[in-house]
């Protein structure tokens, strides 16, 4: 079953076309990588799929709901982690999770338990009452991810979740992604790191608002006669 179905999705800002007729599908439980240089249109595409931006034309069915008419239902069923860190720095770890959990209407008691379990998994339970501004960036990113999946969404959109994070935390972060995907949650992730692209079930490469390549990492390597995704990307850019 597909949890994301996108057809001819387009977004124009005035005369500028940020996303130009992209079409693709993502299966349930799949980790789908969105690659592309800065300004290729990845973030705009994600914003349209998560109901933050209305598309100019085309359709997108997310978790069975239409982005044009059912954005409220979509929002209830997705998690989103933006490019820049966007939890509240002046609230504690617990307060942040409590705030977002409550907005998603998780019952009070249930919410407390979920936060507790989640922090334990992250090995952060002793920092529940620490202000977010006081914890290191890597932890913040993991915390943002944990907060984004607190309400058990069907799909999680991750917009460059690991930029600026050290290699060890990146590895841990990807473990979190795998664990989450294994419970049937669909993950759509954008990244700059080509080694991370290898971890995805399928990847797509965007350029100038268009979806240029799509397939499993192996398929793309074969197609471009390359040994790594990095090579694929370099060859693609030179072409």
């Amino acid at each position: 079953m597909n949890s994301i179905e996108v057809h001819d999705l387009t977004k124009q800002f005035g005369a500028f076309t940020a996303v130009n007729h992209i079409s693709f599908e993502v299966r349930e439980g799949e980790i789908f990588g969105f690659l592309g240089a800065n300004g290729a249109g990845k973030t705009t595409a994600i914003k349209m799929m998560s109901g933050l931006l209305q598309p100019t034309s085309g359709t997108a069915i997310i978790a069975g709901y239409d982005v044009r008419t059912q954005s409220k239902l979509i929002k209830r069923n997705i998690g989103y982690m933006s490019q820049r860190f966007s939890l509240y720095n002046d609230l504690t770890v617990f307060e942040n999770m409590q705030l977002f959990g409550t907005i998603y209407k998780i019952p009070r008691k249930e919410l407390k338990e979920r936060i507790h379990t989640s922090l334990k998994e992250l090995d952060m339970d002793q920092h529940a009452n620490t202000l977010v501004e006081a914890i290191p960036l890597g932890w913040k990113q993991k915390l943002a991810f944990a907060t984004a999946i607190l309400h058990r969404p069907k799909i999680v959109f991750l917009d460059e979740p690991t930029s600026g994070v050290d290699p060890i935390v990146r590895r841990e972060f990807w473990k979190l992604i795998y664990d989450t995907a294994s419970t049937g949650v669909t993950i759509l992730v954008t990244t700059h790191y080509m080694d991370e692209a290898e971890y995805c079930n399928r990847i797509s490469i965007m350029a100038e608002g268009e979806l240029k390549l799509i397939g499993t990492p192996d398929e793309l390597k074969k197609k471009m006669a390359a040994t790594t995704i990095n090579d694929v990307f370099v060859k693609f850019v030179r072409r």
Partner: peptide, 13 residues
């Protein structure tokens, strides 16, 4: 400015 509003906008609030 700091982007927290985006995180709120993406919720069903």
């Amino acid at each position: 400015e700091i982007g927290t509003i985006e995180q709120v906008n993406v919720t069903p609030i």
